[in-house]
Computed example of a mutant assay.
Amino acid sequence: MDIFGNDMGGVGADTIEDCIEQCTRNTKACYGIVWIEEDKVCLPKGASTSYRSLSPKINATAVLNIPYQVEQDMNDIICPYPNLSTQKTRNGLEFQILCGANLSFDDLLSPLTDSESEMHANSLLECLENCAKLHPLCTRVTYNADRNGGSWLNCWLKQGVTSKATPDTRLMVHSAYALVPNLERNDCRNGSLVQVQGSETRFRLSCNDFRRINGTVGSIPQSYHEKSLQDCADRCGNKGSTCVAAVFDHEMWSGFQNCYLFDKMPGPGEQNSNYTFAYLDSLSSQYLAPPPKPAEISGKSWMAGIITPAIVIPALAGFYWYWARMRKSKKA
């Protein structure tokens, strides 16, 4: 089958799935595709594409969007929240709303979940929720509610401070800054114990200890936002919980949900001052410390680098003086 008209150019695609992906990521709204298997060509189709546009064609496959997915909700024309107001997500992260503003740059890719910064959201709130639960930390978003003038991937997750809010001529583009709280840094002593409040359960601490929170790509343990190491230990030690260890991210570098729970003892990770590892005291025999960091250049080596030239240069000068004198005496 073919779709008559409404062409938006052509791109290469080895499979029909690749062609649909091209349509999804098109900068303009894509309403359907035609994939020509023999030529490995993908033809995205624009507005006004419908089943009425279908026509027979050999070796071509046509796919249409489900109509309701591209129908514009008139409520999206206005910003859903007052400008500069604050909205809170389910996990407690607050955002300041910037109506009619666009944030360029700083799109991020999550190395922990292998997910990209562009995704689809049905509302600005859903886009905020996507940001709040992302690993690593997402600090700002831009959302485009225009289903006719934008791509299906209309929620951009960002990190950093490069993005500056600029007015957008499209009335349905809005952004938000995450109001990330500053957590109080707890003093940590290796081997010390933290007792779960209201329980006899105790956790032993390993300071500056980062354990892999994604044992396999795309997989992370249960995570929650907690304000302190004590709260994280309490979360892990709750009655009936299968949790045996936890990693607390003081700086929330890995995400706003900064308390990671493990149902089995994770292997050794690496030294990192942003993290504290807590494990059940009863599992102390299974604990393996993270490997030490590569040894830094010692003071002795540094001194050798300074002293050696001071010794070698005068020695060479003395040798040259001796050689020149002997040569002169031979000529005489």
Rank of each mutant, 00 (worst) to 15 (best):
I36C: 11
R202E: 14
I20T: 09
E226I: 00
Y322D: 07
D2C: 02
R204M: 14
E37Y: 11
K158G: 03
P82R: 03
N26G: 03
W302T: 11
T162H: 06
N182A: 12
I213L: 12
P67Y: 04
T276V: 15
G237D: 06
L112H: 14
S273D: 13
T162S: 08
K57F: 07
M119T: 13
S241N: 10
E270G: 09
P221H: 04
Y224I: 12
M8E: 15
G215F: 10
V194G: 00
S104T: 10
P44C: 09
L288T: 11
T166G: 03
F105W: 11
H120P: 05
S298V: 00
Y143L: 01
R202Q: 12
G198I: 10
Q222L: 15
K331H: 00
P67T: 02
R140I: 00
I313Q: 03
D73S: 08
M172A: 02
P56S: 07
D234E: 12
S282W: 08
V217I: 10
L124Q: 00
C127K: 00
C243P: 09
N75H: 10
S53V: 04
N83V: 01
S301Y: 11
L157S: 05
L64M: 11
L288H: 14
C19K: 07
I297V: 14
V63S: 04
S50W: 02
T139N: 06
L171A: 04
F248L: 10
I311E: 07
E226R: 11
V312P: 06
S192I: 12
V194S: 07
N258K: 08
W152M: 08
V217C: 04
D76C: 03
C79N: 02
M265V: 12
L128P: 03
A178L: 02
R212P: 00
S206V: 13
S53N: 15
G269Q: 08
Q197A: 14
R189Y: 12
S115L: 08
S254H: 07
A315E: 04
P111G: 01
S241P: 03
D14N: 11
S53D: 15
T242D: 15
S50E: 05
D107G: 03
R211Y: 05
M265Y: 01
G92C: 11
D39G: 08
N154Q: 05
C188A: 10
H174A: 01
I311N: 09
G12T: 09
N122M: 07
N238E: 14
A233P: 00
V161Q: 09
V161H: 04
K158L: 00
I97R: 08
E17R: 11
Q195M: 12
G10L: 12
A295K: 09
A317W: 15
S329W: 07
C207R: 05
S329I: 09
N186R: 13
S123M: 04
C42M: 04
I16Q: 15
N6A: 07
P82W: 04
N238D: 14
D106I: 02
T242N: 15
N83Y: 00
N26R: 05
W35G: 06
A304Q: 13
S301Q: 14
S228E: 04
E116C: 01
P294C: 08
V247C: 06
M303H: 05
S199I: 03
P291M: 08
A304D: 13
